[in-house]
Amino acid sequence: MRNLVTVVVLLVVGSMWTFFALPWLLETVFLNSFASPGLQVQQFLDEVTGKLFVVFWCCNVSVVLLWVVRTMQRRAASAARVAAMRTRWWTAASLLLAAGLLLSAVMVLFRFPQLSPGGIILLLALLLVNEALLFWLPTVFASRGSYRLVVPGAQLFPKVLMGGS
């Protein structure tokens, strides 16, 4: 139960980031970073915040829910069996990142070739931040007891905050 509450809370926080904080940051703080000759910045931002990050949010949330269901269903009587989940986590994370890159290429980079190299790097960095907030953090805190150290970096957090059974 504690896992589910943690997932919901973290996904709500992630959603607020995706749907409110990120668009606001892009339109205020990062607006000039994307500006380049010939680029329709407003059209570009609408595409990024309205489509790219929304689709990426869907991918992350789906994979997180899949992860939670999988770790809740899977009996973890053996340490080796639990440890094998780390490979799956890396696979999921890599696929998500690949999906993010592909989506960025198809939805933004091909459509807005005027985007400066600095803008591309910033976009990719924001994708990574999104993946960290929407996938890594929820899987760290929502992986129940036996799986609490499966997610890389989980040992950095105090045990008391983690892994309800």
């Binding site: 053996s78 340490a79 080796a80 069996r81 639990v82 440890a83 007891g145 036996s146 150290l149 499966v150």
Partner: peptide
């Protein structure tokens, strides 16, 4: 159970073993 875990982890780094056995 527990002994089988420890046996399989014989010689393994503790850090790696703890991924699957946080109790360790």
């Amino acid at each position: 159970n527990i002994s089988l875990d420890l046996e399989a982890a014989n010689g393994q780094s503790l850090k790696r073993f703890c991924v699957g056995a946080p109790w360790a």
